[in-house]
């Protein structure tokens, strides 16, 4: 699978942490899990013997245009639609691109239907993800399918970020 950008990996890890997925891990084990993920660093040594660290970070999966991703939106709907419409496919394998784009255009249509019921859209994406996860596992060589699943991960990430942005707004209002 393609390597993920840091924010996507961090979102995923935070969601898992909140769900209690790392409950049984000690701090040491958790640190190891993080170091093994995209957020970790590799230590290499030069010919002269001195060591330096390099990150595991690589932008290979499609990403959202940075200006669009960082903009402020008055609604979740606008946030989601803008992000879905501004995905950059730089260095993404052509064989997976078809599936990816097909999924993105499908969910763009779907969210327009669900503008007034974003909760239903959230649930639909989660259910689709679970279904496609199984399909990807059973057919690991189908690039169209893997591209489609990558896109689903992106949709989920956008949904999560739009949610977090609004919750942050509320937290800011409520204060400490």
């Amino acid at each position: 699978m393609s390597e993920k950008p840091w924010s996507e990996s961090l979102d995923e890890m935070l969601a898992k942490l909140n769900n209690g997925d790392f409950v049984d891990q000690s701090l040491y084990e958790f640190e190891k899990t993080i170091n093994d993920s995209v957020l970790g660093a590799r230590y290499q040594s030069t010919r002269k013997g001195s060591t330096y660290s390099t990150t595991n970070y690589k932008t290979v999966v499609p990403h959202i245009d940075r200006a669009v991703e960082n903009a402020k939106y008055s609604s979740r709907y606008l946030h989601i639609v803008n992000c879905l419409e501004n995905i950059v496919y730089h260095r993404y394998p052509e064989s997976k691109k078809d599936g990816y784009q097909k999924a993105i255009s499908y969910y763009l249509e779907e969210i327009k239907k669900h503008q007034s019921s974003l909760k239903a859209f959230d649930i639909q994406v989660s259910e689709d993800m679970a279904a496609y996860k199984n399909r990807v596992r059973s057919s690991n060589t189908d690039d169209y399918l893997r591209g489609y699943y990558d896109a689903l991960l992106m949709v989920k990430k956008i949904l999560n970020n739009s949610k977090l942005a609004k919750l942050a707004e509320l937290a800011n209002k409520v204060g400490k």
Binding site: W6, S7, S9, L10, M13, L14, L17, L27, F30, E31, I34, N35, S37, V38, L39, G40, A41, S53, T54, T55, N56, Y57
Partner: peptide, 13 residues
Amino acid sequence: VLINGALSTISGS
């Protein structure tokens, strides 16, 4: 731990 991992990655990139 998680945020520090991310910060290290960001500063590296």
